[in-house]
Amino acid sequence: MKILLSNFGAHVPSVPQSIEMSTGLVPPIVITEGHIDLDYSALLFFDRIILDRDCYERVVASRIAPFAHLRSSLRYLREEGYLDLVAFKTHADANRARIEETAAAASRDLDTWLPELRKQIENWEKIKPGMVQALGKHMTPWDQYSIGIECYLHETTGKIEQAEAEKLKSLVFSKKVRRSAGEREVLSRLLVPFLEMTHLNLVVGEVVGCPQIFDWQTLDGFYRKKFEYHLLRDFEKERVPMSAMKELFSLAFKRYTPQTAQEWASLLQDDRIRDLRERVVQARAEGENFDQDFAQDALAALSTDQTRLQQIQKIVGYITLPLELLPLVSRVVTEVATRYYEHKILKPHRWLYFSSRPAMHR
């Protein structure tokens, strides 16, 4: 199964390519153990990754030190055949009018989209401190605010002015029931980049036959509304594989989270990946929460069944005692019986053994 990684801000009609954003260079990333890389726990539900060719080339050519780990990962994934490159710009240019018209029309519906803009800004403010710490001096003034605010200031003043940016944020979070025509116009313009961005990724996904899109989590609200209002698709259902897998590792088995491209690729080669995927889907369908209680319950069930297996192994050994005059036959019978019961009893726990593999090899 394939997953398309977004290229934040690139090829979006309303986002000037002259804006110098370090965060705009990269696909959706996470910060783990001091380095920046892809979110491999969420990607465990997929076997191939689709990425914008321009994005790949920019990251690989970048001299930004904090991106060193990400550069190495993308090269590895490309060389090992896990990463396919697609020219997003070609599809963006071919569908520019459609993208612009759809976004412009939607931006007038403030009741639908303004709440999602507020969530985006709130979520960005939560993750920004980590980005500032990871990127250091490479975090430019154009990385500090929501992309809608940055595009508006770029068009109106050509620079980031903190006072003006804060005024725009205040307008977004204002509880005023009646807004002036000017205020409504500004809010619409703040929404357009997000509406164009999400629509562009959906168009590219449609063209390349990859409906699964992985973008920055701050944009989930925009995708949810796009899916439900325009595509008539269940966003939550389509997000289950990624979000559930991410929760499993981040909340229940954090120390086992795959942290490198090599670990991710190694896990994909293990046939127990299917067991893990099936268990995640089953748990979510049954309403189970991936937390410490889930982890403890899973380990307790495994311990119980291992005890049961040990008891059966003793019984099998006892039953085969009369064959001790034929030791080779006795050993073969015992081994075959043991393998049978191991498969039968421990099969439901194969995913649990699998999930611990990354940490075992560090």
Rank of each mutant, 00 (worst) to 15 (best):
R58A: 08
R58W: 03
V59S: 04
V59D: 01
V59A: 04
V59E: 01
V59F: 01
V59R: 11
V59N: 05
V60K: 06
A61Q: 12
A61E: 11
A61R: 09
S62C: 10
S62T: 07
R63C: 07
R63F: 03
R63N: 13
I64P: 11
I64M: 15
A65Q: 11
A65N: 05
P66H: 15
P66N: 14
P66T: 13
F67L: 15
F67C: 13
F67W: 15
A68V: 14
A68Y: 11
H69S: 09
H69E: 03
H69Q: 04
L70M: 10
L70P: 10
R71T: 12
R71H: 11
R71E: 09
S72F: 07
S72P: 03
S72R: 13
S72C: 06
S72A: 10
S72E: 15
S72I: 03
S73G: 04
S73H: 14
L74Y: 10
L74M: 08
R75Q: 13
R75C: 01
R75P: 00
R75E: 01
Y76Q: 11
Y76G: 05
Y76S: 10
L77I: 14
L77A: 13
L77M: 15
L77N: 11
L77Y: 13
R78K: 15
E79G: 04
E79A: 06
E79L: 03
E79I: 00
E79V: 00
E80S: 15
E80A: 14
G81K: 09
G81E: 11
Y82V: 05
Y82S: 14
Y82N: 05
Y82W: 10
L83H: 12
L83A: 11
L83I: 13
L83K: 10
D84A: 13
D84C: 04
D84Y: 04
D84K: 06
L85S: 08
L85R: 08
V86I: 06
V86R: 00
V86P: 02
V86S: 02
V86T: 08
A87G: 03
A87W: 01
F88H: 12
F88Q: 05
K89I: 04
K89L: 06
K89R: 15
K89F: 06
K89V: 06
T90L: 07
T90E: 15
T90Q: 14
T90I: 05
T90G: 02
H91M: 07
H91Q: 03
A92P: 05
A92W: 14
A92K: 09
D93F: 01
D93Y: 01
D93P: 02
D93H: 05
D93K: 08
D93W: 00
A94T: 08
A94M: 04
A94S: 14
N95W: 00
N95E: 11
R96G: 05
R96H: 09
R96K: 13
R98K: 10
R98C: 05
I99H: 00
I99K: 00
I99T: 00
I99S: 00
I99V: 03
I99F: 03
E100A: 07
E100V: 15
E101F: 07
E101I: 10
T102G: 02
T102P: 01
A103F: 02
A104W: 10
A104D: 11
A105R: 15
A105F: 07
